[in-house]
């Protein structure tokens, strides 16, 4: 049992008081509390205290970075060097320039990166802003889910 709520402690104490009725020696108390704990654990499924959400998780592999905006010199170099600094491996890259409009999709593997997803996302968005690009960073799974049966 990881942690007890006040309610649970109160219930254990009440059980112990009922069972001991004046025969409270340290050994007896320990025995009763142990059995009460077992009963709580084995009883009806209780709501476990929720596992804390991990602060910075690895996205578990592949991330898709999409960027749009007006074309200018050095966009590709800027984005890819930032990815290198983040230790993200570029797996696939597709770029189109339609009139003056620049679109790029970069599939990266972040397995080797020590940076959490949140940092990668934030730094890529900031990098994009320096080129006046809108950058969207998403885990690859959402695309697989939506477009593959």
């Amino acid at each position: 049992m990881s942690s007890l709520t006040e309610n649970e402690i109160r219930r254990i104490a009440e059980m112990a008081v009922r069972q001991l009725e004046g025969h409270a020696t340290p050994a007896n108390v320990e025995k009763v509390v142990k059995s009460a704990l077992n009963r709580l654990d084995g009883g009806a499924p209780k709501t476990e205290r929720m596992k804390r959400v991990p602060g910075g998780t690895h996205a578990g592999g592949r991330i898709i970075i999409t960027a749009f905006g007006a074309n200018s010199i050095g966009i590709l170099a800027g984005l890819t060097s930032e990815l290198a600094a983040l230790r993200c491996d570029i797996v696939d890259l597709s770029q189109k320039i339609m009139q003056e409009f620049f679109t790029i999709m970069i599939l990266v593997d972040s397995q080797a990166s020590e940076f959490p997803f949140e940092t990668i996302k934030q730094r890529m968005v900031e990098k994009g802003e320096s080129f006046n690009l809108k950058v969207i960073v998403q885990h690859e799974d959402i695309f697989k889910t939506m477009h593959r049966v």
């Binding site: 898709i64 696939d92 597709s94 189109k96 690859e140 695309f143």
Partner: peptide, 13 residues
């Protein structure tokens, strides 16, 4: 499994 650019653009749209 390869994700095509149009699929990505559709999701973003």
């Amino acid at each position: 499994m390869h994700i095509e650019l149009p699929e990505i653009l559709e999701t973003i749209r």
